[in-house]
């Protein structure tokens, strides 16, 4: 049996047991932290589809979390409360914006793509800060949250935990299946050697665009769930530093691997919690840690757990 699948299965089983285990050890306050980690993991897994599998280094991914969150917030403010309706609107909005920016950004590749996604991300960020009716810079507190078929079960506590858990599980399975499908194979071929893929008869940019839109939509979903969790939305979730965090997560975890983005996201959230518990200025450690990671470590956490995984993917 595939080791990646086993490790992933263990992680999910562990997560699933948390709502039962945490109250026993008196650590219920960690539920929020876990939800935060799962939301980051959803976005990171989606980014891994374009960076890890697609080889397109996007530095604007957090902007789609922002689009998803704001679409949801605006929907809630306008009285739409059913979570699946909000989901449909969120997917539509993030998908449309990703389609337009993706078409433009994919006219280029490599480092130009990086700069352009960064710039579009920043454009979205500034657009969100100038939405005066929805809080502008300061953000917006939401007094009503989404409901699941009219019930408030997905608004906090275990209900929300399981809902986010389900979303993460679907993302984890879905993105991996996509990456191993015919479509994903073309995407990975284009990462390895775009000219070769083109000469094989594939319109590479179209495949990359589809991947970009899929990834943006998933990030949008994590934005929706973030609103539901935080009961608050502000432009800072779309800042380019958040895109940087996502990249850190997937590189830390191991690019294009089954569990890399998942592990990386959890690692970051836990590390932040841990470092900041004894040093308020924890970023003084975190920054140099990243530099050292790049200079001396390769392959990420996933490789540590799975020394033979490189060949397989």
């Amino acid at each position: 049996m595939d080791r990646g699948l086993v490790i992933g299965g263990v992680i999910f089983a562990f997560l699933l047991a948390m709502p039962v285990l945490l109250p026993i050890v008196g650590a219920e306050y960690l539920t929020g932290l876990l939800i935060k980690a799962m939301l980051l993991a959803i976005a990171a897994i989606s980014l891994d589809l374009i960076i890890g599998h697609g080889g397109m280094v996007s530095l604007g991914h957090a902007a789609f979390i922002g689009v998803g969150a704001y679409t949801t917030a605006i929907g809630l403010q306008s009285g739409i409360e059913e979570i699946f309706v909000l989901l449909a609107i969120t997917l539509g909005a993030t998908g449309a914006i990703a389609l337009v920016t993706g078409i433009l950004a994919l006219r280029t590749s490599g480092v130009y793509f990086l700069m352009i996604t960064l710039a579009f991300g920043q454009m979205i960020y500034f657009t969100l800060t100038s939405l005066a009716a929805y809080g502008g810079d300061d953000g917006l507190t939401l007094w009503s949250l989404a409901t699941l078929f009219g019930s408030d079960i997905v608004q906090d506590g275990r209900g929300l935990f399981f809902f986010v858990f389900a979303a993460l599980l679907l993302t984890w399975i879905g993105v991996w299946r996509v990456s191993q499908s015919r479509f994903g194979r073309v995407l990975r071929a284009a990462r390895d050697n775009p000219q070769r893929a083109e000469v094989m008869g594939y319109p590479v940019a179209r495949y990359q665009l589809i991947a970009y839109v899929i990834a943006a939509c998933i990030a949008g979903v994590s934005g929706l769930l973030l609103v539901q969790y935080a009961e608050f939305v502000s432009p800072s979730i779309a800042a380019w530093q958040r895109s940087g965090d996502l990249i850190v997560a997937i590189v830390l975890g191991g690019l294009g691997s089954r569990n890399g983005a998942l592990l990386g996201a959890f690692f970051i959230v836990i590390m932040e919690e841990f470092l900041s518990s004894f040093l308020h200025e924890w970023r003084l450690i975190y920054g140099p840690l990243l530099v050292l990671l790049v200079l001396f470590a390769k392959g990420g956490l996933n490789d540590l757990l799975q020394p033979t995984s490189r060949e397989a993917s």
Partner: peptide, 20 residues
């Protein structure tokens, strides 16, 4: 080789079934 074959046999816009 399979990736090259795939370009000429059926759609490559299949997102779920493992190609391998």
């Amino acid at each position: 080789v399979a990736t090259a074959l795939q370009a000429k046999t059926g759609s490559s816009l299949r997102f779920f079934a493992p190609a391998a």
